[in-house]
Computed example of a mutant assay.
Amino acid sequence: MEAQNDTKISEFLLLGISEEPELQPLIFGLFFSMYLVTVTGNLLIILTTISDPHLHMPMYFFLSNLSFVDICFTSTTVPKMLVNIQMESKVITYAGCIIQIYFFALFVGLDNFLLAVMAYDRFVAICHPLHYTLLMSPRLCGFLVLASWVTSALHSLLHSLMVLRLSFCTGLEIPHFFCEPNQVVHRACSDTFLNDLVVYVAAVLLAGGPLGGILYSYSKIVSSIRAISSAQGKYRAFSTCASHLSVVSLFYCTLLGVYLSSSIAQNAHSSATASVMYTVVTPMLNPFIYSLRNKDIKSALKKLFENL
């Protein structure tokens, strides 16, 4: 018999990273600092790519979109956590939790798709340099970003609707600092088989697809770089995708590490702590990775500060 949504609850309790009262000021200060760095760093990347005409290229167009998504991604979870710590409250409303699940899934999906699009951009630039301008036209770049948004929005809507069908009776405490979808689903007192099935199918299609595209792109990139005769040419070609490769490695390693370890770990709070890596730390480090490893970004940032 199909489960009906007869939910009577109005709120969940987010237990956060730690329930120790003496650690709350430290956690607040740490997360507030990381949030400020994340927003500031990614805003600087966006302003730099917009203000410098030399950066009006597909590579930096996708980078500015990634920076915007990273700001939104962190803003989905961290501000609510900071407010709860400051007000000494653990409450998030039922509606607020569903909204948080929606935007969390949306921005995780967008990160995933944009990294795949950026890998394709590097593939075209290195493997088909003579046709780069033709292949990576402004129209195609806009379509790729729009398709990423639409696909991610539909995926996150599906996740939210799947949670709405569940009934919650007891166990409303979520051992996390935000409404992590897996934690919320498994607090339900109705059957979650369909939810789990949808999550696994979506993970294979919407995470495995872009990851497969990234791996394929870099396999072709490596082959093209190996075919270059001069060492300087190889270095120049590799340097154009080194930043993106670093971001991809950081994002997928932390994301996969969290979800693989969470299936083994018995302590739910350890999973929440590990989730900080891809929800907060990775968006914070992305601007540094791109600015420190990219001469064009560093030069544009210098000009931006000089004009302020």
Rank of each mutant, 00 (worst) to 15 (best):
I289T: 08
P25G: 11
G109K: 04
L26V: 13
N307Q: 12
T93R: 03
Y132S: 08
I228N: 10
L194C: 02
L140S: 02
L43E: 01
S75R: 05
G171H: 05
R187K: 15
L197H: 01
V281W: 14
I126S: 08
T38N: 10
G16F: 03
I126Y: 07
S246V: 09
Q24S: 07
S89Q: 13
K80T: 10
G209L: 15
V184D: 02
K303L: 06
Y218R: 07
R165D: 07
T151V: 13
C72K: 09
Y132T: 14
S18G: 13
A300C: 09
Y35T: 03
Y120M: 14
S239W: 03
P25C: 06
G41R: 10
A105D: 09
M59E: 15
F62H: 10
G213D: 03
I264Y: 10
S246R: 05
V201E: 00
S148A: 15
A272S: 12
A242L: 13
T170M: 06
R165N: 08
P287G: 09
A265F: 10
K298T: 13
L206D: 00
V276D: 05
F31L: 15
L130P: 00
H244L: 15
Y218P: 08
V185Y: 02
A207D: 00
I297H: 02
H186D: 10
Q100C: 14
P21C: 10
I214V: 12
V39F: 07
M277N: 03
V108K: 03
M162R: 01
A116D: 04
V163C: 07
V78I: 14
K90F: 10
F178P: 01
V222P: 01
F177S: 09
Y259T: 05
S291M: 14
T7W: 03
A202Y: 02
P129F: 10
S229M: 06
P181E: 05
L66P: 04
G142D: 04
S275V: 11
S75I: 09
A119G: 15
Y132R: 15
F143L: 13
T133A: 15
V280Q: 09
Y120S: 11
Y259N: 12
T49P: 01
R139F: 13
D121I: 06
N294P: 02
G16N: 01
V117Y: 01
R165I: 04
A272C: 14
I221R: 01
P210H: 06
